[in-house]
Amino acid sequence: MNELIKVEVKADTQVVSARELYKGLEIKRRFSAWVSDNFKDFIEDVDFTSVRKSTEVKNNGGIQIRELQDYAITISMAKELCMMSHSEQGKRYRKYFIELERKWNDPQEVVKRGYAILQNENARLKIENQAMKPKALFADSVAASHTTILIGELAKILRGNGINIGANRLFQWMRDQGYLISRKGTDYNMPTQRSMNLGLFKIKESTITHSNGSVSISKTTKVTGKGQQYFINKFMKMNETA
Rank of each mutant, 00 (worst) to 15 (best):
D47P: 13
I43T: 06
V46R: 10
I181R: 00
N2F: 04
E80I: 12
V35D: 07
Q193A: 09
I165N: 09
R183E: 01
Q177M: 15
M1T: 12
Q14N: 08
D41G: 04
D140A: 15
I203S: 15
A78P: 02
R102A: 14
E205H: 12
N161R: 14
K95S: 07
H146S: 01
E205T: 09
F39K: 05
Y230M: 00
N212G: 10
G24F: 00
A143K: 05
R169E: 03
M236V: 14
S32L: 08
E3C: 15
I208C: 04
D37A: 14
Q228N: 02
L25C: 11
G90V: 00
L200F: 06
K103N: 13
V35M: 11
I117M: 15
A131W: 05
S206P: 00
T241G: 11
V110C: 03
E3F: 05
S50W: 14
Q89L: 08
M174G: 01
I203T: 05
R113T: 11
E67C: 07
P107R: 11
E8Y: 11
G213W: 01
G160Q: 08
I98P: 06
L4I: 07
A123D: 12
Y96Q: 01
K234D: 06
T49N: 13
I127C: 07
L158D: 00
S87E: 12
R52T: 14
V35P: 07
E44A: 12
T49Y: 00
F31D: 01
N105R: 12
T209K: 04
I27M: 00
R124L: 08
G199C: 08
M132S: 12
V142Y: 09
S141A: 08
E88S: 15
N161T: 09
Y93T: 02
S87D: 10
I63E: 14
K234W: 07
L200C: 01
S211I: 07
K112T: 03
K91E: 11
E153Q: 14
I63C: 04
A144H: 01
A136V: 12
T209L: 15
A33P: 02
L180I: 02
S85E: 00
I73S: 02
M83L: 13
K58Q: 15
D176F: 09
R102I: 10
A136Q: 03
K222T: 08
I73F: 06
I117R: 13
I5E: 01
N233D: 06
M238W: 06
M236F: 09
A33W: 13
I165L: 06
K184P: 04
C82G: 06
I98L: 10
Y96L: 03
E20V: 09
K53Q: 15
G24M: 12
D70T: 06
I127F: 07
W34P: 03
G61E: 03
I5A: 09
E109M: 15
N60E: 15
Q229V: 05
T55R: 13
R52Y: 11
I127M: 12
K91P: 00
D176C: 07
N168I: 14
K103M: 11
I43P: 08
L68G: 10
V223F: 06
N239K: 10
P191Y: 05
P134F: 09
W34Y: 14
K156H: 03
S76F: 03
L180V: 06
S54W: 03
D70P: 02
T49S: 13
F39G: 13
